[in-house]
Amino acid sequence: MSSRRLDKKIDAAFKFVGLAATLFGLVVLAALVIDVVSDGHQRLGWDFLTSYPSRKPEQAGIFSAWVGTLWIMITTAIFAIPLGIGSGIYLEEYAKRNRWTDFIEINIANLAGVPSIIYGILGLGLFIRMMHLDRSVLAGGLILALLILPVIILSTREALRSVPSSIREASYALGATKWQTVRHQVLPAGFGNILTGVILAMSRAIGETAPLITIGALTYIPFLPTNPVAFNKEIPYIHLSLQGFLDPFTVLPIQIFNWVSRPQKGFLVDAAAGIIVLLTITLAMNAIAIYLRYKNQKRW
C-alpha cells in the first residue's frame, strides 16, 4: 500500500515538474524580451527607422536594413512560394508511391535539416561564382528561397493530406479532371493551412543571417536598392526598373550582427533597438500563423 501512496506522490510531483519544465523556455524567452527592450528602447524612434548606418552610434539607424529585408523577402517569396506549393501538390496529389518518390522525400527531409550556412556556401558557389550575381538582392533572395523551400513543401503536403479524399472523389464523380479537382477543390480546402506554413517559412527567412554573411552581404550599406518605380518629367513620366534586384543590400539581422560585434557600448544599444524591430516582425508573423492555424482547425 505504501508504494501506491508513493506513486501517487510521484505523480503529483511530476505534474509540477512537467509544467515547470514546459514553462522554463517561456520564462527564458520573457527574460530575453525584457533584457532587449530595457537595453534598446531609448534608441527606438522615427530617426532610428529612417537613418542610414553611421560611424556614430547615436546617429545610426536601420533604414537601409529594413528596406533591404523587404526587398529580400519579396524576392524570396516570388521564387519560394509557387515552387514550394507546386512541389507539395505534386508529391501529395500526383506522385505514385515508388522508389523515386521515396528518394525525393528523403531528400526534402534532409534539405530541411541542412544547416543554413551550407545554403550560403551553395549560393557562393552557384550564384556568385558561376552566375556572377554578386552580392545582390537577387542572389540573397534566391539563397533564402532554396532555404525555405523544404519548409513550404512539407507544410503544403501536410495541409493537402488533411483534406479528406471524399472531396476529391466527389469532384471526379462530377467529371472534373485531376487538375480541376486540385485547383478548385483541394487547394481551396487546404488554403488556410498552406498559408500558415508559408508565413512561418517567411518569418524564418527574415531572421536568417548566416547564409547571407557567406555571400559577403556584411558591408556598410548607406543606400537603398534602386527604386523599381521612378517618376520623371519627360514622357512617359514613369520609369520602371528591375535594377534594384541586382543592387547590393543589407538586412536587419546582418545589421544587428554587425553592431553586436563592435566593441563600443553605443552600438550594442543600436543592436538591441534593431532586435526589438526584428523580434516584433517575427513574433507578429508567428502570432498571425498561430491564429490562422487555430481558425482553420476543421474537423472533416
Binding site: L26, L32, S203, R204, G207, L278, T282, I290
Partner: peptide, 14 residues
C-alpha cells in the same frame, strides 16, 4: 513553445 524556435538566432546570440 514553438515561438522559441522562431526567434532569430542572431537575437539569441545577443
Amino acid at each position: 513553445l514553438e515561438i522559441l524556435a522562431a526567434v532569430p538566432t542572431v537575437v539569441y546570440g545577443y
